[in-house]
Amino acid sequence: MKMNKYTIAQLKRGEKGIIGNFSTDVVPVKLQEMGCLPGSEVQLIQFSPFNDLLYLNISGSFFAIRKEIASLIEIANAG
């Protein structure tokens, strides 16, 4: 099952997508408050060296999160 999921962690560099649903139990409130919400547009700007952090632009906010969290946030429709 997990294989089929398309999450922020699977985005390629420069790729954009729309954030789908995610579980509020595991995704910190703070991240949601920075604009990471279902329906927001996300773009992967850059990976950190060794692929640990993802540098994102979520509806105009620039920030980095770790891959573990990113892999919990699904992309509704890649584009």
């Binding site: 910190p28 703070k30 952090l53 620039f62 980095a64 999160i65 770790r66």
Partner: peptide, 11 residues
């Protein structure tokens, strides 16, 4: 503790 990390990347 959760692996929770958010760092703003300011201009």
């Amino acid at each position: 503790s959760r692996s929770f990390f958010i760092a703003e990347m300011p201009g």
